[in-house]
Design a protein around this nucleic acid. Sequence first.
DNA 1: AGCAAAAGGTTGTAGCTACAACTTTCCTGC
DNA 2: GCAGGAAAGTTGTAGCTACAACCTTTTGCT
Lengths: 160, 160
Amino acid sequence: MSTRWLDDAEMTAWVRLAAVLELLPGVLDSQLRRDAELTHYEYYVMAMLSEAPKRTLRMTALAQRTNATLPRLSHVVKRLEDRGIVERFPCPEDARATNARLTAEGWKKIRATAPGHVATVRRHVIDVLTPEQISQLADITGAILESVDPEGNLSEVYRR
Amino acid sequence: MSTRWLDDAEMTAWVRLAAVLELLPGVLDSQLRRDAELTHYEYYVMAMLSEAPKRTLRMTALAQRTNATLPRLSHVVKRLEDRGIVERFPCPEDARATNARLTAEGWKKIRATAPGHVATVRRHVIDVLTPEQISQLADITGAILESVDPEGNLSEVYRR
DNA sequence: AGCAAAAGGTTGTAGCTACAACTTTCCTGC
DNA sequence: GCAGGAAAGTTGTAGCTACAACCTTTTGCT
């Protein structure tokens, strides 16, 4: 079976996307690290918790919303717990499960951190695109996510 | 100074892009790791070398084309050298500089690996998009790269 | 009921990346 | 022609992620 190589247009798009994949996380991480001693993933964990009812989510749900594996989340939450940013407690309905909750301190921290982070996202992504491109980007990433998602356990937001 | 938060359309695009940033590298890495014991970054290093004249590039040039810092590249190249995939030798014109060259074995390896990798890229990115979307993606990532790029040392491919 | 399999988490560890510190060579101005 | 700084790499190390192994509780079957 013979390989279908990429033509010029496809190659350009792919090379640039690969560069974004390589560079953008570093930009986000270093702003958050500098201003709040957080990684982008840690920020995302806090953000998902802050939007949940009672600022609480089960580990599995949190892992899904943050696009991470459970082991990764477990390690991260432990570190955040040591820093007083989240707390864990057993889930009453299911003795296997663990709930993670954003503490008052964590809530204060993300409120203080959000403006700087949003400004960074705006500066490097949103504000360099036209409204039309933003809509195109949502469609494009939506299509990619559908194919990347193993068995349909994406968050609702990704659904097209 | 007050924060301009993201509206719904902006938020959707950003959340999805963030998910792609988180998930796509893992997909690429695991295919390459499974089939060739390579990370995506290692593959990229080999690919850039394979396209260069004499399959040779100076470390700085290679770092730039692979969107990485020099320390990172240095570590990676050392490991590839230990595996007989690349070799390093001092640059004749500049005694500070080091050249990296793809070995015959490395050349064979990337030729054997490329079809599987391209198939993965097609499956998860290129083939899920229309030709129009591919062109849009190139423009969008081009704009992001310009803003992310610190002082204009991007490869030519990124220029719009 | 009782047992196997699945679901939910945690822990240990190897490996990769970021950051800082350091060495050597080259360039510039005086 | 020679200091001082920039450029090119390398190395050491701390920290994060992936992967595998493990434990406990729940579910499904019969």
